[in-house]
């Protein structure tokens, strides 16, 4: 859970920073997307790096989901009887990891259909990601879906990053506050960074 989660997290930071290039206009953004396909040339062939990254990400998502499923099955089996009355003290982020993960998984499918395969994109012009993004977020449902998913992502990372630090044995009484602050900071940074794009399109700042 921790290793695959952190791998996806590292990818998300890079992805979020890349997305922000949309604020520099169509030329910059589309040029950046083109460059992504040329990384590693001439050692690597055209788009090879992109495909290596995609394979790595799919492996991470699948392993993460499988581990989550196995862990959840075990945890539910270990606590078969519920309490008549239970006072829960864990935070909202902590209690929503399972559902949050499922929402994120569904979102990833939608996101790929929208902006990678362009299957559900209203413009669907390959090689013109800027125009496709703008067209997508002009529809209310796409923007709303994106924003809700990014709020779920923020919650997932808020608990997940700190939890991963515990799992990997990096946490200690002295460093606990540091890891909590890092988790909150990362969650806020990623959520705001990702949400900035649909909000900009919906308000007309990017068109």
């Amino acid at each position: 859970m921790a290793v695959t989660g952190l791998a996806m997290l590292a990818y998300l930071v890079a992805h979020m920073l890349g997305n922000l290039k949309i604020f520099f206009g169509s030329g910059d953004f589309n040029g950046y997307a083109h460059w992504l396909r040329t990384i590693g040339e001439p050692v690597l062939h055209h788009e090879w790096f992109l495909w290596l990254a995609r394979v790595g990400l799919v492996v991470a998502v699948v392993l993460h989901a499988v581990a989550a499923y196995q862990l959840s099955r075990r945890d539910i089996a270990a606590r078969p009887a519920k309490y008549e009355r239970k006072r829960r003290r864990a935070s909202y982020a902590t209690r929503t990891m399972r559902w949050g993960g499922i929402i994120l998984g569904l979102f990833i499918v939608w996101h790929l259909l929208d902006l990678t395969t362009l299957t559900v994109n209203p413009r669907a012009e390959a090689g013109h990601p800027y125009e496709n993004v703008v067209a997508s977020f002009r529809t209310w449902y796409s923007g709303a879906l994106y924003i809700v998913a990014m709020l779920a992502l923020g919650l997932h990372i808020r608990h997940g990053f700190w939890s991963a630090a515990q799992t990997l044995g990096a946490g200690s009484a002295r460093r606990d506050r540091l890891f909590k602050a890092l988790a909150n900071g990362l969650a806020l940074l990623l959520t705001c960074g990702f949400i900035a794009v649909p909000v900009a399109v919906m308000t007309g700042a990017v068109s």
Binding site: L71, R74, D75, I76, A77, A78, R79, R88, R89, A90, T94, R95, M97, H159, W162, S163, Q166, T167
Partner: peptide, 8 residues
């Protein structure tokens, strides 16, 4: 069960 760091 396994730990999910709920802290309870």
């Amino acid at each position: 069960g396994g730990c999910t760091n709920t802290g309870e």
